[in-house]
Simulated assay, not measured.
Amino acid sequence: MEIRTASSPKDVKYYTTERLREEFLVENLFKVGEITSVYSHIDRIIIGAAMPITSLMLTPGEEIRAEYFLQRREMGVINVGGEGTIRVDGTEYTLKSRDGMYIGMGAKEVIFSSKEKDEPAKFYYNSAPAHKAYPTVHIKPENCVRVELGSLEQSNHRTITKYILPGQIESCQLVMGLTSLKPGSVWNTMPCHTHDRRMEAYLYLDLSEDSLVFHYMGEPIETRHIVVRNEQAVISPSWSIHSGCGTKAYSFIWGMLGENQDFDDMDGVSLGTLR
């Protein structure tokens, strides 16, 4: 498990390109036959992925000092690969591409498998500290809350599918979902915002080899950018804007945790403020 420490905005504005990427970009999440994970000191989120050829069991590692991974944690999972299964304490759930799961605190055995090794599942997960056990739930995107925002004229026409949020799938603090831009749209969340009460993580998807996203971050008056490619993730501190502009339409999985679960608790940033 890789460890990432928290960073001050006073320091980040002096970072080089390489240092920005080292601190906030996660490049190699999906590795065939492995579970990878990055533990961030920013609200103690763990970002990870499992790409099983044979069955892979989720283990805690020394870093979280627990008997099992979800002893004091909860997690959300979204499959972005071929069909696969997740077995939770003996109960098996089949996940097609873009199906998700919420797995509550206290689940002792979590095992990832693929239906076909030639087209393995790609399970992306976010895990947060938890204080209460909520039920484990198989999430199908067609049953989720969906919101359509933006317009083609503003190059930001997009659909937000909310997988884990209060009133739909209950959790202690994790909120998670998927945003997909419509063809011809390239901007996500512009005008942008911050939310000091929650950090956020993005996994960028649906990008071809010859396309990329400029992920904008930093304080509104000290913006920076990170070039992101397909199936790479960005850790976004609560003090930072988080906006993307692609060379073509793309999708991304977002996960948030922190002080509250209010999706609309945002501090808007006017275009005139950005620098």
Score class of each variant (00 low, 15 high):
residue 118 D to M: 07
residue 265 D to H: 09
residue 133 A to W: 06
residue 41 H to Q: 14
residue 51 M to N: 13
residue 49 A to H: 13
residue 62 E to R: 10
residue 16 T to W: 02
residue 148 E to H: 03
residue 189 T to N: 15
residue 155 S to C: 04
residue 54 T to I: 09
residue 213 V to E: 02
residue 29 L to P: 05
residue 121 A to P: 00
residue 23 E to G: 03
residue 271 L to F: 12
residue 40 S to L: 11
residue 272 G to C: 02
residue 105 M to K: 10
residue 187 W to T: 11
residue 140 K to G: 04
residue 89 D to A: 10
residue 48 G to F: 12
residue 262 D to S: 04
residue 217 M to Q: 09
residue 118 D to A: 12
residue 95 L to T: 06
residue 60 P to N: 07
residue 232 Q to Y: 02
residue 270 S to I: 06
residue 208 S to H: 07
residue 188 N to F: 10
residue 259 E to F: 03
residue 98 R to C: 01
residue 224 R to H: 15
residue 65 R to D: 15
residue 34 E to Y: 09
residue 25 L to N: 02
residue 93 Y to I: 08
residue 8 S to I: 04
residue 196 D to Q: 13
residue 228 V to Q: 07
residue 240 S to L: 03
residue 179 T to D: 03
residue 142 E to T: 02
residue 245 C to A: 09
residue 245 C to V: 14
residue 141 P to L: 09
residue 198 R to M: 04
residue 109 E to P: 01
residue 238 S to C: 04
residue 242 H to N: 08
residue 78 I to T: 12
residue 197 R to I: 01
residue 162 K to R: 15
residue 18 E to S: 14
residue 271 L to A: 11
residue 139 I to N: 06
residue 229 R to I: 07
residue 92 E to C: 13
residue 120 P to K: 02
residue 210 D to Y: 11
residue 264 D to Y: 13
residue 224 R to M: 14
residue 122 K to E: 15
residue 213 V to Y: 01
residue 219 E to T: 08
residue 197 R to S: 01
residue 110 V to E: 00
residue 216 Y to S: 00
residue 97 S to V: 07
residue 68 Y to C: 01
residue 17 T to Y: 11
residue 242 H to M: 03
residue 169 I to K: 06
residue 236 S to A: 13
residue 69 F to D: 00
residue 29 L to V: 03
residue 259 E to G: 00
residue 3 I to K: 15
residue 136 T to S: 14
residue 156 N to V: 04
residue 123 F to R: 11
residue 116 E to P: 01
residue 20 L to S: 01
residue 81 G to K: 07
residue 96 K to W: 09
residue 112 F to I: 08
residue 203 L to P: 11
residue 21 R to I: 00
residue 239 W to S: 09
residue 186 V to M: 11
residue 145 V to A: 06
residue 269 V to C: 10
residue 33 G to S: 11
residue 236 S to V: 15
residue 122 K to Q: 14
residue 275 R to N: 15
residue 26 V to F: 04
residue 255 G to R: 07
residue 214 F to C: 09
residue 83 E to V: 13
residue 31 K to E: 14
residue 39 Y to C: 05
residue 152 L to D: 13
residue 63 E to P: 00
residue 66 A to G: 02
residue 67 E to S: 13
